[in-house]
Design a protein around this nucleic acid. Structure first.
Lengths: 129, 129
DNA sequence: CAGTATCCTATTAGATACTG
DNA sequence: CAGTATCTAATAGGATACTG
């Protein structure tokens, strides 16, 4: 038998920060929201590509819990919900851009679905924004 | 039945970059290596805290494959191996520091093993480096 | 419209023992 | 010394059906 779970690990703000906007979908959600003031759930889902509702909803909850995204609910008929970046969320965007710029120098096209260039901020091999 | 695996996803350099230094251990390895010129495997392991050999070895392999870390083997008696950051690896350090600085403004101490301040670059609540 | 609920799979992380 | 091999555990990600 071995220990089933480690104690919570020593970690610095860097590692904490990477939890807030790392992972498979969070950075993309932040990017998409940074281009528009607000987005409805259904529009956001469409912009994200092939994400499922289960994953999108749970990821949004984490982003809201961590204060990066805000949710406004409109109880009209038909009802809708709008998502937007908070000030805290907007303050990560420059960091994401610097990562995109850094990685753009090295990223190569792997396949049809993994373009070498960023489709929205236009960073990529040999190209400046 | 449902599809077992999604096709490789459309992703921009940002998402590619986060794969290179995101994840649970990579950023910490880069931080530790950025402080010394080179480190032996056993020293690195000690500096990392409670990481297992299995995880450390496989994480180092990824970092080497992606060109962030270099490995030099010395076939003396006793043999040893030295790890260091490549130029590419060193070029992420400023990005990691900016994340650390950003997150330091928000991170709060969660427990004994999750200090609010970075132990090495000294970013944290109310504190500038 | 904007999600939940439920179930399932894939990947990552960890423990321990062993080796060139 | 510097790992590899093998196993188990935990978590993140995904599909589908259904609901206030």
């Amino acid at each position: 038998m071995y220990q089933r779970k480690l104690a919570p690990d020593i970690r610095c703000p860097l590692e904490y920060g990477l939890e807030l906007f790392g992972g498979k979908w969070k950075s993309r959600i932040i990017c998409v929201l940074s281009e528009r003031e607000t987005l409805r759930y259904s529009t956001l889902r469409r912009e994200m590509g092939n994400i499922s509702d289960a994953v999108l909803a749970s990821t949004l909850k984490e982003l809201i819990r961590d204060g990066l995204v805000e949710r406004r609910q409109f109880d009209e008929i038909p009802p809708h919900v709008e998502y937007s970046l908070s000030a805290k969320g907007a303050s990560v965007v420059p960091i994401l851009q610097s990562i995109c710029r850094w990685a753009g120098a090295y990223h190569r096209q792997v396949g049809e679905h993994t373009p070498a260039r960023c489709q929205r901020c236009d960073y990529g091999p040999g190209g400046e924004p």
